[in-house]
Amino acid sequence: MTVDRRWFIGLIVALVVSLGANLVVAGIVVAHRWVPPPPPPFALGGPSATEGLFGQLSPEGRDVVRETMRATRKELRDEFLALRESRKQVKALLEADPLDQAALAAALDHMNAQNAAIQARYQRAFVEVASKLSVEDRRRFKPSRADDGRPPRPEGAEHGGPPGGPMLDGPMPDDMPPPRP
Results as ranks from 00 to 15, higher is better:
Ala113Phe: 04
Thr72Lys: 07
Gln114Asn: 10
Phe54Lys: 01
Glu158Gly: 07
Met1Tyr: 04
Val129Phe: 00
Arg121Phe: 07
Pro152Val: 05
Phe126His: 09
Leu83Pro: 06
Phe80Cys: 00
Gly55Pro: 01
Pro40Asn: 12
Val3Cys: 09
Leu23Arg: 15
Arg87Gln: 13
Ala96Ile: 04
Pro171Gln: 11
His110Met: 12
Pro181Trp: 00
Ile9Met: 13
Leu81Gln: 15
Ala146Tyr: 02
Gly10Cys: 11
Met176Val: 14
Ala130Trp: 07
Gln56Tyr: 01
Arg73Val: 03
Arg62Glu: 01
His159Asn: 12
Thr72Met: 09
Arg5Tyr: 02
Arg180Pro: 08
Lys91Trp: 05
Ala106Lys: 14
Pro143Met: 04
Ser86Asn: 11
Arg140Tyr: 03
Ser86Cys: 05
Gly149Leu: 05
Asp97Pro: 02
Ser48Phe: 08
Leu11Trp: 09
Ala82Gln: 03
Asp100Lys: 07
Leu93Asn: 00
Thr50His: 03
Ala107Thr: 02
Glu60Gly: 04
Phe141Gln: 01
Leu108Phe: 11
Arg73Lys: 13
Glu79Trp: 11
Val135Pro: 11
Arg70Gly: 00
Ala96Cys: 05
Met69Val: 07
Gln114Tyr: 02
Arg124Leu: 10
Glu136Leu: 07
Leu81Cys: 10
Leu19Asn: 15
Glu136Thr: 10
Lys74Asp: 15
Gly165Ile: 08
Leu168Arg: 14
Val3Ile: 11
Leu93Phe: 06
Leu11Glu: 13
Pro36Arg: 09
Leu19Cys: 15
Lys88Val: 10
Val129Ser: 05
Met1Val: 00
Phe8Glu: 15
Gly10Met: 12
Ser48Cys: 00
Met172Thr: 13
Leu23Cys: 13
Gly160Arg: 05
Arg6Gly: 02
Ala103Phe: 01
Leu104Arg: 09
Val65His: 08
Gly156Val: 07
Pro177Lys: 02
Leu11Gly: 15
Arg150Asp: 12
Arg145Tyr: 06
Ala146Thr: 08
Val24Phe: 15
Leu81Met: 14
Phe126Val: 04
Ala26Phe: 12
Leu133Gln: 01
Ala103Leu: 09
Pro181Thr: 05
Val65Gly: 02
Glu67Ala: 10
Leu81His: 13
Asp4Tyr: 11
Tyr122Arg: 06
Leu57Lys: 08
Ala82Ser: 01
Leu93Ala: 02
Arg145Leu: 13
Val65Asp: 06
Arg77Glu: 15
Gly27Ile: 02
Ala130Ile: 00
Glu155Asn: 14
Arg139Trp: 09
Pro163Cys: 09
Gln119Asp: 14
Gly170Pro: 02
Arg5Leu: 10
Ala146Glu: 13
Pro177Trp: 00
Leu11Thr: 14
Phe42Tyr: 11
Asp148Lys: 04
Arg77Ser: 13
Met172Gly: 11
Glu85Leu: 11
Lys88Cys: 08
Leu23Gln: 13
Phe54Thr: 04
Lys88Thr: 11
Ala130Lys: 14
Asp137His: 01
Gln123Gly: 11
Met69Ala: 06
Leu19Trp: 15
Val129Gly: 00
Leu83Arg: 12
Gly161Tyr: 04
Asp4Cys: 05
Asp137Gln: 01
Ala120Tyr: 10
Glu85Ser: 12
Leu83Gln: 09
Arg124Val: 09
Gln89Trp: 03
